[in-house]
């Protein structure tokens, strides 16, 4: 990864909510084509951190460089336009709408007829079927409601959508936390496909095994601070687990649980 230039560099990001310090100076860089896992327990500041990147929160202090230039996103739309897409765990899709309508939500293709612009359903349906086939999901028809898809398939549709619309950085917020084993492996396979296309993936999770399955580098957050970034092969699952929980207490817990956590 050292040979490519980072697409995103975040330096000493701080975020305060009133008197609560959610982030106390976190730094991170992300390269194209890598899957950078952001690990941390609940409340560690993972979500706050990526919201600073996706334009939801403005950081209280610190700098964000995007493609080498300093950036400040006023809102999520700014970040999306710049190529930073976020797939949220449960807010990605609208179940009552068809896959094609969901896929093109906010980016509807239009066709001009006289002075009027119409939704180009033909184009939308064709592209949706193609993109879904690439990701290994066979749809009955593009009119199929998203509600009929499994949780893993919905995540995959959301990821395919973000990539199709030119995301260079893809932030996945706990995409596997609510999924079964098989669905999780489908989503991890999707992440792998996307990474190979040269997209930088930020994979947020608190499951060490999911992270180790696809991650190239691992950054652990704990109580709003980073405990450093490790490369694949430099760190074991036990060490990651340890760093996430803050060492001490988990060591005690693990003793009583016989190393099963």
């Amino acid at each position: 990864m050292a040979d490519t230039k980072p697409i995103v560099e975040m330096k000493n990001i701080e975020k305060h909510f009133g008197s609560v310090i959610a982030l106390a100076g976190v730094s991170l860089d992300i390269h194209p084509g890598e899957c950078h896992c952001l690990l941390g327990d609940n409340g560690a500041g993972k979500s706050t951190f990526i919201k600073a990147l996706s334009g939801v929160h403005a950081p209280t202090a610190g700098e964000i460089f995007y493609e080498g230039r300093p950036m400040r996103f006023a809102n999520p739309r700014d970040a999306i336009d710049a190529g930073i897409a976020t797939v949220y765990q449960d807010l990605a899709m609208i179940p009552l709408m068809s896959v094609a309508r969901n896929f093109f939500m906010g980016n509807e293709p239009t066709r001009k007829v006289g002075p009027f612009r119409f939704f180009d359903h033909e184009h939308a349906n064709r592209v949706t079927m193609e993109e879904m086939a690439k990701m290994g999901i066979s749809l009955r028809s593009p009119d199929q409601a998203v509600g009929t898809l499994s949780g893993g398939e919905r995540q995959t549709v959301a990821i395919a959508r973000a990539v199709y619309f030119g995301a260079k950085v893809l932030i996945l917020d706990e995409p596997t936390s609510a999924l079964g084993v098989r669905q999780t492996s489908n989503v991890l396979a999707t992440i792998d496909k996307v990474r190979k296309q040269g997209v930088a993936v930020v994979f947020i999770t608190h499951n060490v095994r999911h992270a180790l399955a696809v991650g190239d580098r691992f950054t652990v957050l704990n109580r709003g601070k980073t405990l450093g970034t490790a490369r694949r092969g430099e760190i074991t699952s036990e060490e990651l687990q340890d760093m996430m929980a803050g060492g001490q207490e988990l060591a005690e817990l693990e003793g009583s649980l016989g190393g099963t956590v």
Partner: peptide, 10 residues
């Protein structure tokens, strides 16, 4: 359908 999901996609 879902105002929040819609906002996230712009």
């Amino acid at each position: 359908g879902d105002a929040q999901a819609a906002r996230y996609t712009g």
